[in-house]
Amino acid sequence: MDLLDILLQTGFWVAAFRIATPLVFGTLGELLCERAGVLNLGIEGIMTAGAMTGWLAVHMGADLWTGVALAAFTGLLLGSLHGVLTIPLGLSQHVAGIGITLLATSTTYFAYRVILPDATSPPRIAPFPPVDWPWLKAVPGIGPVLAGQTALTFLAFALVPVLVWLLYRTPLGLAVRTVGENPIAAEAQGLHVHALRMGAVLAGSALMGVGGAFLTLSAFNAFFFEMVNGRGWICIALVVFGGWNPAKALLGALLFGAFDAFQVRLQQAVGGAIPYQVFLMLPYLLSIVALVLVSRRASYPQALMRPFIRGRR
């Protein structure tokens, strides 16, 4: 059966890891925000802005890592706006997040049009190359798959244990989780609720920016309008699916990447018998199904979307 053969192809798994990478960055970023009690619906816009700034920096002559850093900085800036609006000011996280997404997206498109007024086809850059280490390629099975990835994928996967350690093994992580569960208790412990939440939102938003930059600096080699295409919203679903745990979220992102890569190959195998839109719908529908499946045991951070105002219960 050739459909099962797909699962044995190296190219399929290379694609699965590649598709998962921006989702890993975005999901970890959103997870960090939500663990501190802030729902960041700005993610879609932050990823768009990160994709543009990272690509633009490289297009203008900076090296690739500078592009990544700039994308992270863009995420940081937009995150600070989200943080100020929702943390000390305590405004609606829904409306603020959608506002940030609208603002970031429109500013990005506006800037792209202003900077490149007469670009008919998007200018291309030289993206991150696959690592291609010979010793890694020699590892049977997973070796060639990993060797086909770029440095950013390794960074994304390395961030998962770092975040697990940070959240579950350090006082800082305990503090972040506390402000997301019970800010009043955190305050009583002498923790600075606003500072911790702000830090989490800033760091998380920076990760989202890098996730966007992966699209332009590694997965593709140019910036297209609407290239983020709902990945930010899928990340939000993945955070719930992963139960706010970085390791499970990584698993979710990989499953999603595998499914998406499979869907593309299935589409080719089926030919024109089924409209291609059906396949393109599947990732979004799958995200919704995943949310329903975990809904019974989803344990939201208790203070998610609850602003903390000192002296008020």
């Binding site: 609006l85 409306v95 506002g99 940030i100 603002l103 429109s106 500013t107 498109y109 506006f110």
Partner: peptide, 9 residues
């Protein structure tokens, strides 16, 4: 789009 997004915030 820029003005509209700014109005929201």
């Amino acid at each position: 789009n820029l003005i509209v997004a700014l109005s929201l915030l």
